[in-house]
Design a protein around this nucleic acid. Structure first.
Lengths: 206, 206
DNA sequence: GCTCCCGTTCTACACCTGTAGAAGCGGCAT
DNA sequence: ATGCCGCTTCTACAGGTGTAGAACGGGAGC
């Protein structure tokens, strides 16, 4: 059974992805989740509480994905749900990352868009940053990988790496690079992303 | 003499940077620009018109910076206002890019934040994308540079490059990497960014 | 049976926002 | 000076939004 809290926060995520933070209102969430009017307002009295719950939900979903390790998604077996922690071969890492990025562009698009909106929001609401714990997991992963690959300063390099990967993702999500890039969800897209990530890894691992 | 249009759109940019798109209202702009109530509403009857003007203003400001080429800023002589188009030495390009990025983190922070908010907004309002012409200039520049550096596929590589650079910027703007990164505005910050960009260039130029 | 309680649903209300139109005002041409 | 015309300023108003609290309902405990 899905708790009502999850129903509400999931609807909130969809709204933010579709209409931006501005589209997030108590009543809109009720409508989107097909709940009786006033429900969201009862569960999260203030808007701040609603946003925090939304961000927490994003973090929880990520944690669940991480939990699954590199295992394929039940729903979409072609994709991993997160990077395999054990992998040390750079080509393998790049391929997995490329696939993962492509997933964020297709199935995960909603969540990805909501996340960027929240990260931006965290700029003027620091408490969100703590909840989001911004990409702490991927950061740790990246550092470990680069350390294993023999980078001189794996911590800095790891941070640069995840920032760049986030940039690649954002670029396509926002449709900036989408004009020239291969369409998401295709093998070409995965290959292109993999290639970029591979280059990044090679660059950072020195 | 500064036109009233510029006063309004500049105030709008500040508002968006500080409080997000949600903070952008006709009345808030009036207050921020210390204009009589109702002024913004008279100049831009609809909210959509206001946003489009804001985005256009961002584009114009960028164009003005580009116009200045790699020349130092009048206000802040330590920084260039855009990348030198002529430069072909990779180390030189990296240094200039690093300095430029650091500028976006300090003096240009407001504009940078507003831009990211608008890019995100463009996700659900495609007409904004056309106005913003997303980073077309930097894209062209990057492609040319990488072509000169002998990259195999300079167009794709150039796009990857600007996406990654944007990622580095966003990462620090949003305060994600800001915890571990050197504080902006310092030589250390510039060095760190330059190093990351240098690595990127090396990676993409193959 | 009645009672109490907690989760749910409904209503109220002050305030904010977008947008339209009226009122005011200064200069220009007649 | 008179009348006209543009810019500017003010006011109105219909929704929308955040938040609080009242009404409802059904199951647990007596």
């Amino acid at each position: 059974m899905v708790t009502r809290y999850a129903v509400i926060t999931d609807a909130a995520i969809e709204l933010v992805a579709e209409h931006g933070m501005r589209g997030l209102t108590h009543r809109a969430v009720d409508a989107r989740a097909a709940l009786p009017a006033g429900t969201t307002s009862a569960y999260y009295r203030t808007r701040k509480a609603l946003i925090e719950a939304l961000v927490q939900r994003l973090a929880d979903l990520d944690a669940a994905d991480l939990e699954a390790g590199g295992l394929p998604d039940d729903d979409v077996p072609a994709y991993p749900r997160s990077l395999p922690l054990t992998e040390t071969d750079l080509d393998g890492i790049a391929a997995a990352t490329g696939a993962l990025l492509d997933r964020w562009l297709t199935d995960g698009r909603t969540r990805a868009l909501a996340r960027y909106a929240c990260v931006l929001e965290a700029t003027h609401h620091p408490e969100l940053r703590d909840i989001l714990g911004h990409g702490a997991a991927s950061r740790v992963q990246a550092r470990a990988m680069l350390a294993a690959a023999g980078a001189a300063d794996p911590d800095r390099a790891g941070d640069h790496f995840v920032a760049c990967v986030d940039g690649l993702l954002f670029d396509r999500l926002a449709g900036a690079g989408a004009l020239t890039a291969p369409p998401p969800g295709t093998a070409a897209s995965r290959a292109d992303l993999t290639k970029a990530v591979r280059a990044l890894l090679r660059a950072m691992a020195v």
